[in-house]
Design a protein around this nucleic acid. Sequence first.
DNA 1: GACTGTTTAATGTACG
DNA 2: CGTACATTAAACAGTC
Length: 320
Amino acid sequence: MPRPGKNSYSDQKPPYSYISLTAMAIQSSAEKMLPLSDIYKFIMDRFPYYRENTQRWQNSLRHNLSFNDCFIKIPRRPDQPGKGSFWALHPDCGDMFENGSFLRRRKRFKVHRSEHLSAKNSQMIHYFQQHHHHHQQQQAKLGLATPETAPGMGRIPHFQPYGVNGPQSTGFKHPFAIENIIGRDYKNMMASGLPLASVMHHLGYPVPSQLSNMVGSMWPHVGVIDSMAPMPVSPDYNPFGVPMKTICHPGTQTMPAVPVPIKPTVSLASISTMPVPGALPGSATQICPSSSSTSLHLDQTRSAPSEGKTSSLHSVLVHS
DNA sequence: GACTGTTTAATGTACG
DNA sequence: CGTACATTAAACAGTC
């Protein structure tokens, strides 16, 4: 057990690779994409270990983003000023960690050249046209979606709860279980009845009038991020902490029609840097955005070195 | 100038 | 033990 004063388990290096950490962050966001700075933020918020040596691990993380095909870059639209692009998961990179280990993927995800210009494109088009439809996506992620409900949509990494359903099913909930990381604050948030609009408000989302009257209170007592804190696991949440019973009802779309970037604006920045424990931007981003129309520009240009990254994918997607 | 993104190279390490 | 994947370092170009 960790001694009270000095190191706790939360200071230990989490058993996740940069790839899984990044995937985690992206998945935790409502839009399933994040700018680099928010990926940093997500990780540092949850893992005290990564609050040090930022130069080192952030360089590594950037390397991973560029090097691995499982991450795709989504340029900002003109009305989304900010630094850098958004990063998302490649729609086909699903089940990267199906072996139960988040340290090492069973196999490196590679986009094949032949698929690059044809199939991948159409799949990405599909993905980006649909990726705001949370209900479908949740189902897809959980493997509940039939091919009809989520056609062409790659399975997002099906993160098994650490130690559960894995190779050895002990029932032990590892402190670093993803559900214990992401799910915690979200569940606390819901348990304390935090209005969704409040979260959205803090994130800089336009708060729909119907919900805005619920805003006003403050953040719940979500407690300090402590990876050792036992966290009851509910089947209502997937390993990413995204509720299975979606809180976003497809019928009641109240969010902006266009995905709003979660950029380090005042609201978000103030949240994440709040000295008061409990503010967890990453969890907040799980609020349903449900946009309807999308105009995304996919610009993926990558050279193909020795073994790796396939040629280039250059396409412009305009959803009408 | 700091941040973002790409790439190469070396080293570390998990897994079959 | 070898291979493949992961981490780290570093150079460098582009962008805000």
